[in-house]
């Protein structure tokens, strides 16, 4: 599935999105993060502190314990700083 990144997650991972093969049994964003941290040391560092991570499923804010399906658009980003 396609996973999107914004702000310092994007710049530190050096990519705005990537295709991720979601392992069987992974159904929640926390489960997806458990997989993402295994992809590279860079991923492990960026996703180490989940308290500073925010997420969206299909462009709607979602808690990390939310369930997703492989056809969803999932994005991870830091807390927003607009306005």
């Amino acid at each position: 599935m396609r996973v999107r990144y914004f702000a310092w997650l994007r710049s530190r991972l050096n990519r705005a999105e990537e295709d991720v093969a979601v392992p069987a049994g992974v159904t929640t964003l926390n489960g997806l993060l458990d997989h993402l941290i295994t992809l590279s040391p860079g991923h492990a560092a960026v996703f180490a502190d989940r308290t500073i991570l925010r997420a969206a499923i299909n462009q709607v804010f979602a808690d990390l314990d939310s369930a997703f399906t492989p056809t969803d658009e999932v994005a991870f980003f830091p807390p927003v700083t607009g306005g």
């Binding site: 702000a7 830091p78 927003v80 700083t81 607009g82 306005g83």
Partner: peptide, 25 residues
């Protein structure tokens, strides 16, 4: 304004003499 600050997906990157830095919430 309060909701724009906390519920709209924008992120600020500040550029100064010492380089660029992401603004913390």
């Amino acid at each position: 304004m309060d909701w724009l600050k906390t519920k709209a997906p924008f992120w600020k990157l500040e550029e100064g003499a010492e380089g660029a830095e992401w603004v913390a919430a």
